[in-house]
Design a protein around this nucleic acid. Structure first.
Length: 1070
RNA sequence: GCGGGCGUGGUGAAAUGGUAGACACGCAAGGUUUAGGACCUUGUGGCCGUAAGGCUGUGGGGGUUCAAGUCCCUUCGCCCGCACCA
């Protein structure tokens, strides 16, 4: 009896009980800051290739942050996060400084819909889910830098989301415009093109409608070419790169303009196949096409019967949703307009039709029909009895006229019936006809993209209010550009006459005064003259000051206290003038200029006074300016200017041959008519807080819930102080997540958005010196070293993030174009062969499994399922097995009596260990977690057979298992490899997770015997075990093989040849 | 329709062109235990055979090669992305 009790006691002691140790270590790691890197001590940029050679490199290990749903953390997220964490832990043990942050993407329609469904207010919903998510995220034992967590709905976060919006607006990348947009009748909001899947809402699956609404857009389409070009350079999952390429959808073709017969009107179409133009027999217009509108407006006389028909058709088409238009599928419909267009190549009179199979949003919204070589055109032509002409002969050699759809020839081929193109293959024909069309002036080569501008506004409640204010009074004023000339100058000098019409074309009002007494001016005289121009504080003013116009601008701004959006100083006079080359000055030189400069030098003292009201300063200098040295930038330091030094631009004047100055135009974005009157909320007033309102539910009227709250939207214009209204739409969730990876690095910096150059941070409203310093230092963590997430974000999140980063690069906030050097798409966890969903009732709650098996078993099990990019099917029996494995490891390494310093490892054991180190390290590096675990299991099976286990084996084993099972290995590590006394000497906690990853030694990998497979005609007939020295000895091996009975049986006299693969195969060929 | 990926035991899966099925799950037999979602041993692709061993085998067909799960062609099936994109 007594023995049984003792046995029981020993057993209990040895049983692995996860729940008792997991919380303990999680708390310890957090209190010790085990996973909290010193962000200000970044040590060079991380790189996946550095490995062990370069230690302590900062490694930004990013995973896609989750949106917190009511159901709690999905086991699929746990899988993804677990894999990323294992990689991060591995990198940390390899000596990297790993930064692994986490947060919640809790703003947006998805979270709001959850709240509506559960009948809770989104704010309460967020509070509840946040608590639950953070609890779960702790429970899985990932090595998060908890101090840097963030939530997108936190005002401290969305303050900067709004700031980002304002920056885009100021750079001309945001505009508000009426256009046909996707509207989800169930979510009661607009959606971006990317959020419409098969004509249905990505979130709720409702059929999406088209509505004409005024919406905010970001000019992502302007970045199409760069977004496309950079894809080449990215170390990303190929699949995702392809999805992005397809989404950007670059197409090279030609716009051809056709004359409409009998009236003064043309129609332009886009085509990628101009080679088939000799076979063009009709034109089809989208119902939205301008020409159709003109017909309906009665712009030219048409048969009233026809006009009526068109009207009915167009109205019907517009009322159809995208999906209905597609559902009607192949059955083409259309109405003839009564008009004909002339094909300039053939003189053919092509009837002009209206049809809804033509997409308004693609190309020019019109197409030229070539029914012989496009199936859709063929269907249309046969339905309405239009002529079909063959112009290409394909591989099949069929030259007959095309009467069946199977004959429609869309592929490679040779031209016929096409005049000067006859006999050419289609590619050569395309080039030739394009050259011809351009030469004759019928058209021009163009590039089109599928990518549309990013629709950013949402008529919902749960998002960051768009930080814009609309002022009716300001809407009546155009932004002004005041150009101030220099000494002896006037409004017709230099490049001023050149730039005036160009700026006007961009929508600016340009003022170039002729200043008095320009040969011998005084500062006061000029400042007074400018003050009489009637420019007020309400004007959205930019100033270009050339030469002496520079200090004049400063004095003018100071005197009138007029806020300036952009101050562009071109070779401005400053204090540093003494270093100039005075010999070069004509008309008496220095003696003439000196008194004038003295009179203007007063303005030098004003520079710092105007810094507050000048938003942006740009300084253009030239390396060969005879009067203004490049050191003049010191005079304007207080304005934190962006300095550009040109080559050979002299004094930027006519004398230096500068009569045109294109660079300066880049400083002035096109003024959107719709944007007039929109004033961004000043930085100091951010965030525009989302107020708590009772009725937060979407209205469905095309307006957001905040539009019912005058106490929110009624405000004053920041520019003119008059009555104005706030924008009541909120921004798209994807804006929140398009920059979160930047914010993680600055969650403790209240007044700085993210790491950025010191001069940029200094421009922020009230950043402290310390924050500016940190912002500058932390840039070393960027761009992200490794990003791992779901492939479902291939086009949405990843494309938007790339765009935002590119825009920030152009604004000078970051110094890289691509945020994610490497992106890896993990697989999905399914259950019983199907995606987990609430409706199927097959949702796995990680909590249950952590409670039952522990986080270690769940983590390891999920990663053992299969390759990390493939995901897997979750099965209870599988996790059972993993739990048993960990328990076996636990009891093996927990047996005190087996751990022995004196245990001598023989060659075999050393080889096994070093081989495992090699294999596991390699697998980890390539995210092959399943095979890494398998190798650890194999080694366990080997160790379990030994009577004693060496300390080294245990240490190495625990270390390699540590990324997978962090709690259990920490417990064993602390038990065995930590002298209890050492705690007194060294109070520092030495976690296994900051210990060094084991390395292997080649010398232990050497084997003395190899097994060689003996084949006869490629079939295995036996094996030979020989010493390594003999692995190349074909003669010996052949002899040994022939002496093997089994092998000999299969060998005849006529062996043709024998192939030896040293160390592997000996193959007899007969 | 276009583009991409994948098809290997009862299951999840391994395999730089070189001994297919490592490692697990499951199952079977045996042992151990008061009991066990525990532990240990052995076996486990299929067919034939008591066994030794043989034949066969990576969706189907063909090819390249001394040698193919792996490379090429073709075909079938499944999954994902895009889609009346001119």
């Amino acid at each position: 009896m007594a023995t049984a009790k003792i046995k029981q006691k020993v057993k209990n002691n040895m049983t692995f009980d996860p729940s008792s140790i997991e919380l303990k270590w999680q708390a310890k790691w957090e209190s010790e800051g085990t996973y909290q890197p010193d962000l200000d001590a970044a040590n060079g940029r991380g790189n996946l290739q550095t490995g062990l050679a370069k230690k302590s490199k900062s490694f930004y290990n990013l995973m896609m942050f989750p949106y917190p749903s009511a159901e709690g953390l999905h086991v699929g997220s746990m899988y993804a996060f677990g894999g990323v964490d294992v990689f991060g832990r591995f990198k940390r043990m390899q000596g990297h400084q790993v930064f692994e942050p986490i947060g919640l993407d809790g703003f947006g329609i998805h979270s709001e819909n959850h709240a509506i469904k559960t009948n809770t207010h989104p704010i309460e919903h967020a509070e509840r889910t946040q608590k639950n998510f953070y609890r779960q995220l702790h429970a899985i034992g990932n090595s998060y830098a908890w101090e840097n967590k963030l939530e997108t709905y936190d005002p401290e976060y969305y303050r900067w989301t709004q700031w980002l919006f304002v920056q885009l607006f100021k750079s001309g990348l945001a505009y508000k415009k009426y256009s046909p947009v996707n509207f989800c009748p169930s979510c009661k909001t607009v959606l971006s093109d990317e959020q419409v899947i098969d004509g249905k809402c990505e979130r709720c699956n409702s059929v999406v409608e088209k509505r004409d609404l005024e919406q905010w857009f970001f000019r992502i389409a302007q970045y199409a070419e760069r977004l496309l070009g950079n894809i080449e350079k990215l170390d990303w999952t190929e699949k995702v790169k392809l999805a992005q390429r397809n989404w950007i959808g670059k197409k090279e073709g030609i716009n051809i303009t056709y004359q409409i017969s009998g009236i003064q009107q043309t129609v332009t179409i886009f085509t990628t196949r101009p080679d088939t133009n000799f076979g063009a027999t009709f034109i089809a217009l989208a119902p939205e096409h301008d020409l159709v509108t003109k017909i309906l407006d009665g712009a030219f006389t048409t048969d009233p019967q026809i006009a009526k028909k068109i009207q009915i058709y167009v109205e019907k088409a517009k009322s159809k949703s995208e999906i209905e238009r597609q559902a009607e599928g192949k059955e083409k419909t259309g109405v003839f307009t009564g008009l004909y267009a002339t094909n300039p190549l053939t003189g053919y009179q092509m009837p002009v039709w209206v049809s809804d199979f033509v997409l308004g949003g693609f190309g020019t919204g019109a197409l030229v029909g070539v029914p012989g070589h496009d199936k859709r055109d063929f269907e249309f032509a046969t339905k309405f009895g239009l002529e079909i002409i063959r112009v290409v002969v394909g591989k099949d050699g069929d030259e007959s006229s095309i009467v069946k759809i199977e004959q429609v020839q869309e592929e490679e081929g040779t031209m016929i019936n096409s005049g000067f193109l006859n006999g050419l293959d289609i590619h050569k024909a395309i080039e030739k006809i394009m050259d011809y069309i351009e030469k004759e002036g019928y058209g021009r080569r163009v590039v089109t993209y599928h990518l549309r501008d990013w629709l950013i506004s949402r008529q919902r409640y749960w998002g960051p209010p768009i930080p814009m204010i609309h002022c009716d009074a300001c809407a009546k004023r155009r932004p002004k550009v005041l150009i101030i000339h220099g000494i002896a100058g006037d409004s017709n000098d230099n490049w001023f006459p050149w730039v005036r019409p160009l700026l006007e074309a961009k929508g600016y009002e340009v003022i170039i005064p002729d200043l008095p007494n320009s040969q011998h001016p005084t500062l006061a005289e000029w400042t007074n003259a400018l003050s009489k121009l009637g420019i007020t504080k309400q004007d959205n003013l930019s100033i270009i000051g050339h030469s002496l116009g520079g200090p004049t601008a400063v004095a003018f701004i100071r005197k009138n206290k007029i806020p300036v959006t952009k101050l562009i100083l071109v070779a401005p006079v400053g204090k540093e003038i003494g270093e100039a080359n005075w010999e070069a000055i004509p008309n008496g030189g220095y003696e003439f200029v000196k008194p004038i400069l003295q009179r203007f030098s007063e303005a030098n003292g004003y520079v710092s006074e105007i810094a507050e009201i000048v938003e942006n300063t740009v300084l253009y200098l030239s390396d060969d300016d005879p009067y203004i040295p490049t050191t003049v930038s010191k005079s304007y330091e207080a304005l934190q200017p962006k300095v550009t030094i040109f080559k050979n631009h002299g004094h930027f004047n006519a004398g230096a041959g500068i009569l045109e100055f294109p660079t300066i135009l880049n400083e002035f974005p096109q003024v959107e008519e719709e944007n007039l009157g929109w004033v961004p909320v000043p930085e100091k007033d951010l965030p525009v807080k989302l107020p708590y309102i009772e009725n937060f539910k979407p209205l469905g009227t095309g307006k957001a819930p905040l539009a019912n709250h005058p106490e929110f939207y009624e405000t004053t214009c920041p520019r003119c102080g008059g009555k104005a209204n706030r924008e009541t739409d909120v921004s798209d969730t994807f804006l929140d997540s398009s920059w979160y990876f930047l914010r993680y690095l600055a969650t403790d910096l209240k007044e700085v958005a993210f790491p950025m150059p010191a001069e940029k941070a200094a421009k922020l409203h009230s950043a402290t010196k310390d924050e500016i310093k940190k912002a500058e230092k932390r840039r070393a963590w960027l761009p992200i070293t490794s990003y791992i997430g779901g492939a479902e974000h291939s086009v949405l999140h990843l494309l938007y993030s790339r765009f935002i980063t590119m825009a920030l690069k152009d604004m000078g906030y970051v110094d890289f174009e691509e945020p994610f050097s490497r992106f890896y798409a993990h697989g999905l966890i399914i259950k019983d062969g199907a995606k987990m969903s609430k409706s199927k009732g097959n949702i796995i709650n990680p909590d249950d499994y952590i409670r039952k098996y522990g986080a270690d078993a769940l983590r390891t099990y999920l990663l053992f399922l299969g390759p990390f990019n493939q995901g897997g099917d979750f099965r209870d029996s599988g996790i059972d097995g993993m739990s048993r494995f960990l328990k076996r490891v636990w009891s093996l390494l927990n047996k005190w009596q087996m751990i022995n310093d004196k245990c001598q490892m023989n060659e075999e054991r050393l080889r096994f260990m070093h081989q495992t180190i090699k294999g596991v390290t390699d697998d980890m590096e390539n995210l092959r977690f399943n095979t890494a675990i398998a190798k650890l299991m194999t080694w366990y099976n080997f160790l379990a057979k030994q009577t004693l286990i060496s300390k080294e084996e245990k240490e190495v084993y625990l270390k390699m298992l540590a990324p997978f099972a962090p709690h259990m290995t920490e417990e064993l590590w602390q038990q065995f490899f930590r002298n209890p006394k050492s705690e007194i000497r060294n109070p520092k906690f030495n976690s296994i997770h900051t210990s060094e990853w084991p390395t292997y030694d080649e010398k232990y990998l050497q084997v003395d015997k190899v097994t060689i497979a003996v084949q006869v005609n490629g079939k295995l007939r036996g094996t030979l075990v020989v010493s390594v020295a003999d692995k190349d000895n074909q003669k010996l091996l052949e002899e040994l093989a022939r002496n093997d009975e089994h092998v000999a049986k299969f060998l005849s006299e006529k062996v043709k040849k024998v192939i030896l693969v040293p160390g592997k195969i000996l193959n007899f060929v007969m």
